[in-house]
Design a protein around this nucleic acid. Structure first.
Lengths: 193, 193
DNA sequence: TATGACATGTAAAAAGTTACATGATTTC
DNA sequence: GAAATCATGTAACTTTTTACATGTCATA
């Protein structure tokens, strides 16, 4: 699955739930899909244009003069089904946190602890945000056939956040026992930055 | 933190553990950092070259004629410490699995179940791999000051994999109750929207 | 002496991000 | 009537991936 077609998936998918303007699409992708997917806005308009040309979406009159609402067409739904059925392209992992911890000897125990505390706090915040989101969406979309699927993805986020908290606590405990070097050696230890 | 400097971090970090050839560096980045970080190999040689010019790494005679072993210098260690201290650049999430599940109504319950079973199996495999890795590294690096940090990152992988398994089971149970539509062939699912 | 692992690199293409440019409409 | 938000788009830039080109050494 070429990368480009993943933008297509996100756009068609969002439109499969409600017709909306390109602007609303941006926001939906940022605020709702945002928890597990990201699209750069620079790609949305070109993709929408291409989808329109292919007849997968239809441009209708928008809420304002000069604005358009886009709706998915039957062929768009078929295309979406096709895209969703393609094998999942593995996204290479990139965790800046783990990269830093891995080289913790050089970074120093103290800073590692700080990073872990931050990560823990972030995860707590995410947890609260997922709960809020689940409540909001359950209310807004009550009875919608999309609801169980949406709740499933939110639950994935919850589980990840919970795992992050457990892990951080464990790692903090483990680092207790590590000699508190705080970078020894040569270089400027407690300075710059 | 510009993207480029993250490649620098990975390269300097790996060399901070052992001096090695560029080839071994590639493998270390693929096999060890690979669980939470990825670098495209096309960047490693140019980055090494730049680091050499800046005096952060030193080229020594390698194990073969024409090959070189690279070692980190004092200024390289200082630079690494600097890079590790920079704020973590948030990497935008991109989960192909969640993107598909989110639009599960269009994809169909059956295929969603298949995806979840696959994800569960993947997580089980990861779990086994993390255990193997932890054993190998504990033996190979016994007593190394890097060991606790390395084990911490492996533990993060374990926790994630465990969370994925719990979540998948939960999601599978939840999807039991969803009307088994399995998209009415090709036509629009519930309507035209 | 052929195969596979070791070893070093480059160039072109694709993808993604960012910042900008522009204007309409609502709300305070 | 000023500010915030809604709305649409483009261009330049950076990053990343992929595929390729080349050669050495051990070993079976």
């Amino acid at each position: 699955m070429a990368r480009r077609s993943q933008t297509e998936t996100a756009v068609l998918g969002a439109l499969s739930m409600h017709p909306m303007t390109a602007y609303a699409l941006r926001e939906a992708i940022r605020d709702v899909l945002g928890h597990f997917w990201s699209e750069s806005f620079g790609q949305i308009y070109p993709t929408l244009g291409a989808l329109e040309q292919q007849g997968h979406v239809e441009r209708r009159e928008g809420p304002r003069s000069g604005s358009s609402t886009f709706a998915i067409t039957d062929s768009g739904t078929a295309r979406l089904r096709e895209l969703l059925s393609e094998p999942i392209a593995a996204t290479p992992p990139r965790s800046g946190l783990l990269l830093r911890l891995f080289f913790g000897r050089t970074l120093g125990v103290r800073k590692c602890r700080e990073l872990l505390l931050e990560a823990r706090a972030d995860a707590e915040r995410s947890l609260a945000e997922y709960d809020r989101l689940a409540r909001t969406i359950s209310a807004e979309e009550a009875g919608s056939p999309d609801l169980p699927y949406v709740l499933t993805t939110i639950s994935a986020g919850r589980h990840n956040a919970e795992a992050a908290i457990t892990w951080a606590d464990e790692a903090l405990a483990l680092l207790e026992d590590v000699p508190g070097d705080d970078p020894p050696a040569n270089g400027p230890p407690a300075n710059g930055e």
